[in-house]
Design a binder for these strands. Sequence first.
DNA 1: AGGCGCATGTAAACGGTTACATGATTTG
DNA 2: CAAATCATGTAACCGTTTACATGCGCCT
Lengths: 182, 182
Amino acid sequence: MSLRHAILVLLQDQEASGYDLAREFANSIGLVWNATHQQIYLELGKLSEQDMVRYRHVPQEGKPDKKLYSLTDAGRAELVRWLKKPAGPARIRDAFMVKVAGGALADTQVLLSELDTLAKQRRERLATFEALAQRLDESGRDENVYNYLTVRRGILDQRAWLQWAEEVRHSLEHRSADSTAS
Amino acid sequence: MSLRHAILVLLQDQEASGYDLAREFANSIGLVWNATHQQIYLELGKLSEQDMVRYRHVPQEGKPDKKLYSLTDAGRAELVRWLKKPAGPARIRDAFMVKVAGGALADTQVLLSELDTLAKQRRERLATFEALAQRLDESGRDENVYNYLTVRRGILDQRAWLQWAEEVRHSLEHRSADSTAS
DNA sequence: AGGCGCATGTAAACGGTTACATGATTTG
DNA sequence: CAAATCATGTAACCGTTTACATGCGCCT
């Protein structure tokens, strides 16, 4: 399990609430590891019990109070320990790809429109990441190497996907031109 | 849940045993969806109860008997139904990426050697996929569009990862040159 | 003799998703 | 007035991994 380690990594840079972490998981890191807020609150609870994180209670006006979590020495030690041992292989669950593999039975039009939807999302992400990369590049490239590399991965990933999407569109459109009778 | 649909897609082309499916999940489709044999046997059991697959018992000599599964009409209908509704977003769990993001605390040498290990695996996969793509391209490109596209995704994915790995190596080597004192 | 490949399975533990619940403030 | 944002949480369920179990044949 390394949801816990993903959380520790995020807390390494800055104090954050469970809510903040959930947002980060939905954006940048989300490409690489995802988690819902319930999962995060649960894990923060466990980490806190095990003294790997501590929190301070921050009352707010208008908004609900928040708990700002930060790493303890034990948490940092755990992170360091984990960083040393080899990571398991990456796992993915890409339902759309399963669909393409089973495409013979699928409605080409449905696949094409879904492809468009996904491509749009990817293009938006790509823009976000490119903007982020530029900002990181301007403001001190050496301190932010790790963040920069993470974002670069996101960029290359989106581009590869979009390129593939072009190939798919080409093949499918060619294919649907054959069978305009259906 | 669409492990079930991934299985249905695989059975669409050919009869297979649980063991066969597990192998396919470990290879080609594994890039896109993964599952262990226990999960597959369990799901095949459920699919069989729901009459979406049937099996014939094949006794073998020397080796244990096997059950060869194939799609029923109900199974094919379920696949078609699923293919029509939009797929959820792709999910990934890439532990190595989490490590890079938390790289400030990591030992650069450890990261670099892990990068090498992963790069080697990716290069092997890339070679496998490229060989497969060529074979598909030669033997009738139109019948195999869907398989071909799936393999293309694998190829583009490996290339993007390897390109990223080059950037990471560059950054990390540069970085470790600074602090040869450690 | 030991390990790998074939082939199937059970059981327990753990990880993760979905639904539900609350409640103030801001934005359309 | 409805919906989104901020902020936290519980409970039930489902999906997934890990460990255990069996047994023959082949290769080193």
